[in-house]
Design a protein around this nucleic acid. Structure first.
Lengths: 129, 129
DNA sequence: CTTTGTGCAAATTCTTTGCACCAAA
DNA sequence: TTTGGTGCAAAGAATTTGCACAAAG
C-alpha cells in the first residue's frame, strides 16, 4: 500500500510533504530523529522546514500512523513500523535496534485504557561489546 | 536499609545532599521530575541547586540505584523502585502510574547485553476516563 | 594537599509558538 | 473564500557545561 493511501485511511490529507516524510520513514528503519529526517530530505526539498517535520511527526503519531520512541532523554525518534516489537538502545554507539518480543501480561488497573505500549532495553550492542 | 547504606553498596559516597535527594525519591513514589525534586527540597536546603539534582540523578541512574523514566518527551522522571514494573502515562492529566507486569519473553539478538528494561503504556487513567 | 561534591551562570539543544504566506477544497 | 499546510524567526524549556569554591579523605 502506498504512503498516500495509508495517510488517507487515517484521515490525514496526503500532501506532497507529508508523503515524502512518511515515505522516508517507511524506507529507513533507522529510527531517525526529526533532525535526521530534515537533513536527509533537505537536499531534495530545499524549502522544507524543521517545523514541518515536527508538525508531521506529531500528527502521524497522534493518528497512530507512526510511533514516537522516547528511549533517549535528549531527543525523540520515530518508527513507521507500528507492529509490536521492542527497541534496544546501545549506550555506547547510540544506535537503536529492533528486537522481537511478545507483549507481556500486564496488570493494568481497572479503568485505565492504554493506547500505546512500548518495550525498550538499554545496554550495549553486538558491535560495542 | 537506609539510603546511605544503599548508596554505599553501589560505591556512591553518601553525602548529605545525595542522601537527602535519594530519601525524597524513596519516600515519594510520584515519579517526580528534577524540577519537582528541586522545588520540594529547596525550602529545607536553600543552597541546593538544580545542577546538583541533575548530577545526582545521573549518577544514581548510571549506578543502577534508580530508574530514569523517559515516557514523556519533554522531561525525565525518576523512580527509586527498581523492581520490575510498568509505567502508565495518562495523556490527559500527565500523571505516571505504576502497574504490575511480567517481563515479556524478549528475543534480544546474540551479542546484545541489556542492563535496563522498561515497559510503558500511554493512555487515559481511571480518573480521566 | 589532592580528590570529590556543590552551585552559579551561561550555553546548548530539542521542541513549540506566533504569525504570515501559500495552496487546496 | 475559507480552511488547512508550510516555513521562518523567535520563544520556551529541559539539561549540560565551564568554572570556581567548598568539603572531605
Amino acid at each position: 500500500m502506498t504512503s498516500a493511501e495509508i495517510l488517507q485511511q487515517h484521515g490525514i490529507r496526503p500532501s506532497l510533504t507529508r508523503v515524502m516524510i512518511y515515505d522516508y520513514l517507511r524506507e529507513h528503519r533507522t529510527h531517525p530523529t526529526a533532525d535526521e529526517i530534515y537533513t536527509a530530505l533537505s537536499p531534495n526539498a530545499p524549502t522544507l522546514s524543521k517545523t514541518t517535520v515536527y508538525n508531521t511527526m506529531k500528527l502521524l503519531s497522534a493518528e497512530g500512523v507512526i510511533k514516537t520512541i522516547t528511549i533517549e532523554e535528549q531527543q525523540a525518534r520515530f518508527d513507521a513500523c507500528i507492529d509490536t516489537h521492542g527497541h534496544f538502545l546501545c549506550k555506547d554507539c547510540g544506535k537503536v535496534f529492533d528486537f522481537d518480543t511478545e507483549l507481556p501480561s500486564m496488570k493494568i488497573p481497572e479503568g485505565f485504557s492504554p493506547t500505546v505500549t512500548e518495550i525498550y532495553c538499554i545496554g550495549r550492542c553486538k558491535s560495542c561489546n
